[in-house]
């Protein structure tokens, strides 16, 4: 295995795309397709939140965002025009401001 093995859990499932998602089912990759280009909240396991427009992401869950605001303990701490968030930073969740990506 390569050194990327630790990132495996964040990779896209290989089985997606072979059938239409069943009603009410929404796999992680369906979710990501739906949030691309939309405002999202990305939370790292450190508790830091990044809110911005999701520009793109890859199989390691590296993320590029635009108009990003950084929140620590709910307080706005900085703003970035564009920003790149590295994939394996124990991201916990991703949500659109109504979607969360907990990474």
């Amino acid at each position: 295995m390569s050194s990327a093995a630790t990132d495996d859990a964040t990779k896209a499932p290989s089985k997606d795309g072979n059938s239409a998602p069943e009603q009410n089912k929404r796999s992680p990759s369906d979710f990501l397709k739906a949030v691309l280009g939309r405002p999202v909240n990305v939370r790292l396991s450190s508790g830091t939140d990044y809110r911005g427009v999701l520009a793109c992401l890859d199989g390691y869950m590296n993320i590029a965002m635009e108009q990003t605001e950084e929140y620590v303990d709910g307080q706005l701490t900085s703003k970035y025009g564009d920003c790149f968030i590295r994939g394996n930073n124990g991201k916990q969740c991703l949500s659109e401001r109504n979607f969360s990506i907990n990474l």
């Binding site: 990501l32 520009a55 992401l57 890859d58 199989g59 590296n62 590029a64 920003c83 790149f84 968030i85």
Partner: peptide, 22 residues
């Protein structure tokens, strides 16, 4: 796979296909 998303055109007008392009 994720990298097959249709390209997103950034506000600055440059096409970005994967995060490392940034």
């Amino acid at each position: 796979m994720f990298c097959k998303w249709e390209s997103i055109v950034l506000s600055i007008g440059i096409i970005m296909e994967e995060p490392l392009d940034l």
